[in-house]
Write a protein that binds this DNA or RNA. Structure first.
Length: 492
RNA sequence: CGGGAUGUAGCGCAGUCCGGUUAGCGCACCACGUUAGGGACGUGGGGGUCGCAGGUUCAAAUCCUGUCAUCCCGACCA
């Protein structure tokens, strides 16, 4: 008798943690805040990677790989950048161990101290710009449109599976351009790519916007973000794209000979999404029975479960199942047939629901007699008895329906949780009792932003780009004039 | 970095206060049998340096000292 998941409505964190572990996505490794991504979780990440990679290439980018370790001095070159990452840097200081005097253990060999410590990359801007200096001589070398898939490390004090781990997987795009306009367009293009990916593949609605100066990436002149809303009413920053101006070009002396024959600094962008998207996926769609995966990212889209008593029955059912599998696979649908006999059908039903498989087909003796199968959809938990004749078309169509339904459902929830408020009382009330995004007037100062954060734990997620929020108003805290509403929320 | 907990079988825990046969339970695992349309049951079985190192004692999972690690709550962050 396996235990049920905790109820989502009772303790969202506990539900999330247990779901991630039990569905086979990931677990804590027992080493600091390091996470093990398990095969099933990694399979989902690989599907995300494949689609994102395709979209990057369609927008003209190429992949490359840069070193894991970065000399400490590189970080010192861009002042804001150091400040942003210094507090969470893992540092390599030695390159050798030796056995202890008593011969029982090992210790760091003090003789093997590095002259300059190396930093395990928290992000790769510095080493990449140091490299780009050598790559870029003239306007003919531009633009440089490179992405890398990598791991990075940020020594976070407190971690949560996928949402904040000390080491995480991500992609980071780093581009160099001739003009400011071109770089800004690139940063905007990539946030659009992320928004499109979230909508069309993750079935996750997001709000595009720009960050306030305090929430900006360390070293950026503008940070574009996509903000998603989780089921517990908290926001999750799901992807960012930065216009870096000429900050890194100047710090790393990356100049090119322009069309006019003058030496100019290049304009830069960087953009990234991480395994945090896995957490976003879980917290957008899942329910008390477990994970709910959008068909486009599900490693297994359809599972077939035989129901049988005797071996002869299993043979007949398996023949039928194979026929259906062949038809589904011919349509590019990934199918698993689970004819294992160590678990009963009821156990399997629960197990594949926990894993979020979008469609389940059950075939039993009754179905063989009637020429039918039982089809269950994960998103609504509805079951239908369907003639097995046109099952491939039915399932193909159903997968699309589920994909759309998940998006529509998440969108409806998200839209219900955007609230406009005009007073601080109302602001606090919505944050505490309803949750979600709050559109409110802000006087534009960092002081007010900090004060509101201190009082309510809510931060300005972004100044939205997807809808017009400009109107005259008064700051909810200070009463000072404001020209537009901004988007607040408590965030992960 | 401040506060609080916990380390006992693969996982989850009891036992520790008040020291005493062979360290126990649930799940998982193995074998056999019965079962199978929403998390089956029976019988038998395997698996432990009680985090680590010292100390007290006739006797330590239990008491003492030290140490290491992990988790939770804060501040910080994709």
């Amino acid at each position: 008798m396996a235990k049920k998941l905790p109820k989502r409505s009772e303790d969202y964190s506990k539900w999330y943690n247990e779901l991630v572990v039990r569905a086979g996505l990931a677990e804590n490794s027992g080493v600091r805040g390091m996470m093990v991504i398990k095969p099933y979780g990694y399979a989902i990440w690989e599907k995300m990677q494949a689609q994102l990679d395709k979209m990057f290439k369609e927008t003209g980018h190429q992949n490359a790989y840069f070193p894991l370790l970065i000399p400490m001095s590189y970080f010192a070159k861009e002042a804001q950048h150091v400040e942003g990452f210094a507090k969470e840097a893992a540092v390599v200081t030695h390159y050798r161990l030796r056995t202890t005097a008593d011969g029982k253990g090992i210790e760091v060999d003090p003789a093997a101290k590095l002259e300059e410590p190396l930093i395990i990359r928290p992000t790769s801007e510095t080493i990449i710009w140091d490299t780009y200096r050598r790559w870029i001589q003239s306007y003919r070398d531009l633009p440089v449109l490179v992405n890398q898939w990598a791991n990075v490390m940020r020594w976070e004090m407190r971690t949560r599976l996928f949402l904040r781990t000390a080491e995480f997987l991500w992609q980071e795009g780093h581009t160099a351009h001739e003009t400011k306009d071109e770089a800004v367009r690139e940063a905007e293009q990539m946030i659009d790519v992320y928004a499109e990916f979230a909508r069309d593949y993750m079935a996750m609605p997001v709000i595009r916007g720009v960050k306030t100066p305090t929430e900006r990436f360390a070293g950026a002149e503008e940070t574009y973000t996509i903000e998603a809303l989780m089921q517990d009413g908290k926001a999750l920053q799901s992807g960012t794209s930065h216009f870096l101006g000429q900050n890194f070009a100047k710090a790393f002396d990356v100049k090119y000979l322009s069309r006019e024959g003058k030496l100019e600094y290049v304009w830069a962008t960087s953009w990234g999404v991480s395994t945090r998207l896995m957490g976003a996926l879980v917290m957008t769609h899942s329910d008390d029975n477990g994970l709910v995966l959008p068909p486009k990212l599900a490693p297994i889209q359809v599972v077939i479960i035989p129901i049988f008593r005797k071996a002869e029955q299993l043979e007949q059912i398996s023949a039928k199942a194979r026929e259906i599998m062949d038809k589904l696979r011919a349509k590019g649908i990934s199918v698993k047939y689970d004819d294992s006999d160590n678990y009963k059908p009821g156990w399997k039903f629960n197990e594949y629901e926990l894993k979020g498989v979008p469609v389940r087909i059950a075939i039993g003796p009754r179905d063989l007699e009637n020429g039918t199968v039982e089809v269950a959809r994960r998103d609504t938990l509805e079951k239908f008895v369907i003639p097995s004749e046109g099952i491939d078309l039915y399932v193909e169509n159903l997968l699309d329906k589920i994909q759309n339904n998940l998006y529509e459902r998440a969108l409806a929830y998200r839209n219900e949780h955007i609230t406009s408020v005009d007073s601080f009382e109302e602001f606090k009330d919505v944050l505490e009792n309803k949750g979600g995004f709050v559109l409110a007037h802000w006087d534009g100062t960092a002081e007010t932003e900090a004060k509101i954060k201190e009082l309510t734990k809510a931060t300005i997620r972004c100044i939205p780009l997807d809808f017009d929020t400009s109107e005259e108003g008064k700051d909810i805290l200070t009463g000072k004039p404001s020209k537009r509403r901004v988007l607040f929320a408590k965030a992960y």
